[in-house]
Design a protein around this nucleic acid. Sequence first.
DNA 1: CTGAAAGCGCTTACAG
DNA 2: CTGAAAGCGCTTACAG
Lengths: 337, 337
Amino acid sequence: MTRDLKKPTILDVAHHAGVSKSAVSKVLTDAYGVSPDLRRKVEESVEALGYRPNLGARSLRGSTYTLGVILPDVGNPIFTEFLAGLNDAVEATRYSIIVGVSQLSERIERGVIDTLLDRKVDGIVYVAKRAFNDELELLAGRIPMVVIGHHSPAAQTYDTINTDDKAAVGEAVDHLVRMGRRKIVMLSVAVEPEGRLSVAAERERGYEEGMQRNGLGEDIRVVRSGVTFATYEASLMTLLAGPDRPDAMICWTDAAALAAISTARKLDIIVPDDLAVIGFDNNPTSAYAQNDLASIDQEARWMGKCAGEALLERIGGRTKPRHMQSRHTLILRGSVT
Amino acid sequence: MTRDLKKPTILDVAHHAGVSKSAVSKVLTDAYGVSPDLRRKVEESVEALGYRPNLGARSLRGSTYTLGVILPDVGNPIFTEFLAGLNDAVEATRYSIIVGVSQLSERIERGVIDTLLDRKVDGIVYVAKRAFNDELELLAGRIPMVVIGHHSPAAQTYDTINTDDKAAVGEAVDHLVRMGRRKIVMLSVAVEPEGRLSVAAERERGYEEGMQRNGLGEDIRVVRSGVTFATYEASLMTLLAGPDRPDAMICWTDAAALAAISTARKLDIIVPDDLAVIGFDNNPTSAYAQNDLASIDQEARWMGKCAGEALLERIGGRTKPRHMQSRHTLILRGSVT
DNA sequence: CTGAAAGCGCTTACAG
DNA sequence: CTGAAAGCGCTTACAG
């Protein structure tokens, strides 16, 4: 927290240090051509006055040293780790972070993007739940950007960071088959056809190819639900109480998998004996004994760090796109044997 | 998403509409004394050009129409609801929201506050996990503020919104006693003495007074833990595996209560037969069958809406403090009988 | 009701 | 190496 009621300006610092305001600006922006002596004097005055640059004024000419983050919602513990990683990346820099939350609403999301743009952030980390390639390209044309959770390996104007969703789910299928499961269903998420969350689409592909590879092409069954507990539960009730009940489920995210465990319990279906369940994200609560949920870890913290670093590189001038992948690991727990 | 690569300025709008830029500014800021005709022309041009004011420039003279929110972390689903409520409040206004996340680190939190201040937000909603009265007063002296989860009913310079934590926990004690429980322990959170989270302190008081009221003063036992799953579990292992095991627990937050259920399960302690558990927050995951956690609901969405409205009032000029209370409800579930 | 001018706090060529 | 000046895009008295 800062000291005075009326914030000192660059002019106050200049007077205090006995130099011109250009000089102050130069040391503040690390411009070249300042003597060590000048720098020291200015830094002392900045400290003494508790000066902090006015970001608005600065944005009119230069950079705000702020990174914007767009998060789909705020209830998933995995974002805590992601943000922690992002923080690791900016920690030693002069950049700070502001976040906008779209709350899974397209309308709010547009507002969030505009707000970030209006505020002249220097770059955006876009954790994309649902986004279209052309919209992303458009945005990326205006501002450095790295996109998380959106597979578009050919994107030229922005970077991406993903887990290999397809391979990860494929391995989950392999594991379940190895454990003797056959009737394996995937619980995925429904959105408008073209707007399909690309992570969910990739996970579905991983499931389908995995089933084919294991000679279970006939048994492929994808159930698509909304993203609330109520919609998960409704889909699951139909699926698990209906005929031809599966003996295993792969869920596109842990929230869905935990709902599956909940619904199974209500129906007296024993996990894992009657039903094996695998989630995605390795949400910390999956380790709780009452959940004991096997899940796919995707190194959220690393992703955050990587996103921050990539964005800073882009802001620094890199234009060649980078598309990175985090390591995925199937964490086995009691929900599958 | 906006259209052009180089954003139009107020001057572009003025030219397009055939008026002066003062005129444009006036309709934009709803200043008085603009003819309906002028207004219409300007609004058409704004629309046609996709003009959006530069917030930096605007902040140099006027207001940014942005509200800053400080969140302690991002993993608690209750914040989703809180943010939704906040969104309800600003929905029909011209204000938008940016959030800073302190990640439970005091150092980061200070950075977040500075960032918000530097960005000239018009007001701050401070969801305070740990904060000191004098720091809050200082901050509130500089910017309109409403504080959530911090009991200081005498605060003059800012508003507060809380649940009646003391009464809520007291009722939980009463209920447990009514159900025949006697050895009731409270799981709370440890922080530096003076920095004690004021919600946790209030909840502890509610517990202690409730125990006294029920003639169980002798049995008062408060265990204070860190706020991670690992620290919860360590404290719980000691408590539940040790001598004189409690027959009921009230946990200061659902995360702790879910950890209690997890630890009990690992120790083959049956919930609720051997141990009743009550949490706080009514986190949506509490309703999952495997958790089935009784919890105290505190109307998070209402709190968010109320916070937004109060902050807008303050920004609008109100200086008289308001201290509001949300309704608390003990939601009974299978973890207590 | 409308517009010309000053000024908010910075950065960046440009001279010295 | 250092400083005077122009200008970023707005808003707000102030004149008309």
